[in-house]
Amino acid sequence: MSKKSFRQAINEALAQEMERDPRVVIMGEDIAGGLGAPGEDDAWGGVLGVTKGLVGKFGRERVLDTPITESGFIGAAAGAALRGLRPVAELMFVDFMGVCFDQIFNQAAKFRYMFGGKATTPLVIRTMFGAGFRAASQHSQCLYPIFTHIPGLKVVIPSSPYEAKGLLIQSIRDDDPVIFFEHKVMYDVEEEVPDEPYAIPFGEARFVREGDDVTIVAFGRMVSMASQAAEALAKEGVSCSVIDPRTASPLDLPTILESVRETGRLVLVDEASPRCNLATDISAQVAEQAFDALKAPIRMVSPPHTPVPFAPALEDEFVPNAEKIAAAVRSTMRAPSKQAAE
C-alpha cells in the first residue's frame, strides 16, 4: 500500500493485467510515443504520460502505437477482441468519438446481440474527458451520457485513484465492451492504493459518506466536489449522503432509491451538458419510482447548455463546484411552501 496518483493507479492496473494475461494488449496514439522518430523511444507514454514505461516492460508487440486514425484502430481493437485478444485502446480525448463512433456503437456494442449471443467482445476503450484543463470545446467534453445511451456498452467513471485501479482491472477482465472515462484534471490526485491487483465490481455504488437529510449523487471528478459541499453543509447542520455510482452503465439505481427513501431529498451532480445527461436520467427514474419519498423537488447541478469555453474566467464559471452543489442542497432543505412561493 502506498500513495499513488490517479495516473499511476491506471498505469499499474494496465501493467498488472498485461502481466497476468498475455492476451491483453494496449493501443493508441503515442501511448509509447517516438515511434520511428530519431529521438527517444517511449517519448510520451500517452499524451499525459499515463502509459509511460509499459513499452519497456511489454514491448512493441503489446504496446501498439497507432497512427492518428481513430476509426482504424478503435475498429481494429473491436475486431481483435472478437478474435481472442483483450485490447485496451486509448481514445485520447473522448471528443474524438466524432471520428470513430461507428466502430464503437454500431460494431463493438452490438456484436453480441446481433450475433445472437455467440460473440464476445472484451474491449476496453480508455478515454480522457472533462473540463478544467483550459482545453476548450473540442478537448473538454463529458460525453459519457452518449455512451450510456447505447445498449451493449458499459460505462465506467472512476472518481479517485483507488477506484481507478480497481475499476480498470474489472474493465479489462470484463467480457463486454467497456468505455473507461478518465477525468484529465484528476491525474495528479493521490491516495492510498494497494500494490496488489484488485477488481471493483460494476453496478455497485459507493457511499462516499452517509447522512440523513439529502442524497447527493455525483460522478467522476464531481464526487470530490460533492464531498467538499457535504463537508461544508455538515457545519451548517445539514447531513448529506454522497453516492458515487462508479458506473453509469450498469447503474446502481437500487442504492440511489434506497438512499432517497431515507433522506427524501436528491441532488444530482453531473459535469456533462444538462440535456439528456446522467442527472436527467437518474432524476426521471427516481421521480418514476420514488416520487412518494420526495420531500422537495430534485435538483440538478450541471454546466449550462453551452460548449466548454476556453477563457479561464468562463471555464471556471462553466464547471459545477462545491458552492453550486451546496446551494442546490440548501434549496432542497427549504420548506416546500417557501419553494412554491419563489
Binding site: R23, V25, E61, R62, L64, S71, G72, F73, I74, G75, A76, A77, A78, G79, A80, A81, L82, R83, G84, L85, P87, D102, Q103, N106, Q107, F111, M114, F115
Partner: peptide, 24 residues
C-alpha cells in the same frame, strides 16, 4: 465476423482480426 449494415464498417474489424492472428 458478420455481414455489416454500415458501408465500410468491416475493414477496421478485419485489421483487428489480423492483429489478433499476428499477436497470438
Amino acid at each position: 465476423l458478420g455481414a455489416n449494415g454500415i458501408v465500410g464498417g468491416g475493414a477496421p474489424l478485419a485489421c483487428g482480426a489480423a492483429l489478433a492472428a499476428k499477436t497470438l
